[in-house]
C-alpha cells in the first residue's frame, strides 16, 4: 500500500521478522488510531461508554461498511464503482414499487437484493464486455440509476413498509447487538476468506498489480472483474434493504453522496487506489474509525458538516503520513 511510485520500491537486504511486519502494518496503525479515538471519546463524553450508545454508533456505518467490503475487492482489482449509492436508491425504489403491489416482506428483500445484483451486472457488462473505463461508466450509471428513481418517485416518497420488514434495519439479534452489525461481521469474515484465503482472492490481487501478466498467467481477467462488479451491486442491494428498513421510507435522494464515503472508507483502510494491495481487516477497522469519529463528534454536538472536515483530513493525513516518513528516511539514508 506504500508503493505509490514504482521507483520507490527497493529490495531489503533481509526481510523483517513477521512480528515486526505485523506491528508496522497498516491495519496495526489503524487499530492504534481506532483505540485512541475510543479512549478519547470516552473521556470527552460521559454518554459514550454505555452499551446502547455504542450499539447506536454502529448503525451509522454498518450499511456503508457492507458495501466497502465489496468495493475493497473492486478497487484492489484496479476498478472502481461510483454508482453504489445510486444502486441503493434504485433498489429501494423497486422495493417501494413492489410494496404498492402488495408484495410481502420476503419478496421485498429478494427484490431489493436482485435489483442491486442486476445493477452490478449492468456496470460489469459495460466495463468488461465493452472495455470502458469504470470511473466514467459508473459516473454515468450513477446518474442513470438515481435518475430512474427520480422518474418513478418525483418529489414523492414510498412509505408504509410492513412492521416485519423493520427488523433488518432496526432489529436486535441479542441484547444490544443489532442485526445490521451481525450481518456486517458475517460479511466481513466471508470477504476475508474470499480475498485472503482463496484462488479467487489471489486473482484479484494479481489483476490489480498487473492485468497483462495476469492474462498471460491464465487468469480470466474479464470474468473476475465482472464477478466483482456483481458482488458490489449485490452488497449495495443488501445495504439498500437495511437502509430502507431502518428509515421505513424511500425517497429518490436516499443515501446521497455515500459513494464518496464508501471510497474514503476503503482507501482509509489501506487499499491502494491504484489497485494491487489492501486487506479486509484494514477496511473493517477503517469502518470502525469512521463510525467512532462521526458518533463521538455527534455526542459533542459537532455538526455533521464539520465532521466531514475530520473525515477528509483523516483521509489525506493517513495517506500522506507514511509517504512523508519514507521521504525523511530516504533523505537521511
Amino acid at each position: 500500500m506504500t508503493d505509490v511510485t514504482p521507483e520507490a520500491r527497493h529490495i531489503p537486504d533481509r526481510l523483517d521478522s513477521p512480528l515486526r511486519a505485523a506491528i508496522l502494518s497498516w491495519p496495526a496503525l489503524l487499530l492504534v488510531v481506532a483505540v485512541g479515538l475510543f479512549v478519547a471519546n470516552s473521556f470527552l463524553s460521559p454518554y459514550f461508554l454505555s452499551p446502547w450508545s455504542l450499539s447506536d454508533a454502529t448503525f451509522n456505518f454498518t450499511e456503508k461498511a457492507i458495501i466497502a467490503l465489496a468495493m475493497a475487492l473492486l478497487i484492489i482489482s484496479g476498478e472502481i464503482d461510483l454508482s453504489v449509492a445510486a444502486i441503493i436508491a434504485l433498489a429501494s425504489t423497486m422495493m417501494g414499487l413492489a410494496l404498492q403491489f402488495g408484495v410481502g416482506t420476503p419478496g421485498l428483500v429478494v427484490i431489493g437484493i436482485l435489483t442491486g445484483l442486476f445493477c452490478g451486472m449492468f456496470n460489469g457488462f459495460l466495463v468488461t464486455r465493452l472495455g470502458l473505463p469504470s470511473i466514467v461508466v459508473t459516473i454515468g450509471t450513477m446518474s442513470f440509476f438515481r435518475g430512474i428513481s427520480f422518474i418513478v418517485l418525483g418529489d414523492q416518497a414510498f412509505k408504509g413498509y410492513p412492521p416485519a420488514f423493520g427488523f433488518f434495519g432496526q432489529g436486535y439479534v441479542w441484547w444490544v447487538v443489532s442485526f445490521e452489525f451481525v450481518l456486517f461481521l458475517v460479511c466481513a469474515v466471508l470477504f476475508y476468506v474470499l480475498l485472503h484465503r482463496t484462488n479467487f482472492g489471489r486473482h484479484v490481487f494479481v489483476i490489480g498489480n498487473n492485468p497483462m501478466a495476469a492474462r498471460f498467467s491464465g487468469v480470466r481477467v474479464e470474468r473476475v472483474k465482472f464477478i466483482l462488479f456483481c458482488l458490489t451491486g449485490l452488497m449495495s442491494g443488501i445495504a439498500a434493504v437495511l437502509l430502507t428498513s431502518r428509515l421505513a421510507s424511500t425517497r429518490p435522494s436516499i443515501a446521497l453522496g455515500w459513494e464518496l464515503e464508501v471510497v474514503t472508507m476503503v482507501v482509509l483502510g489501506g487499499v491502494s487506489i491504484l489497485g494491487g494491495s489492501g486487506s479486509i481487516p484494514g477496511v473493517v477497522i477503517a469502518a470502525f474509525i469512521m463510525g467512532l469519529v462521526t458518533f463521538g463528534l455527534g455526542l459533542l454536538n459537532v455538526p455533521g458538516i464539520v465532521m466531514s472536515i475530520f473525515i477528509g483530513a483523516l483521509l489525506i493525513f493517513v495517506i500522506a503520513l507514511p509517504i512523508v516518513f519514507r521521504m525523511i528516511r530516504e533523505r537521511r539514508a
Binding site: V4, L260, I305, S308, I309, G312, L315, I316, I323
Partner: peptide, 23 residues
C-alpha cells in the same frame, strides 16, 4: 510533492473545503 493519487487528494479536499464554508 507527495505523489498521492489525485482522486484521493481531491476526494479529501472535496469534504474539507465544504466543511470550511460552514466554519
Amino acid at each position: 510533492l507527495l505523489g498521492i493519487p489525485a482522486i484521493v487528494v481531491t476526494l479529501g479536499t472535496l469534504t474539507i473545503f465544504r466543511g470550511i464554508i460552514f466554519l
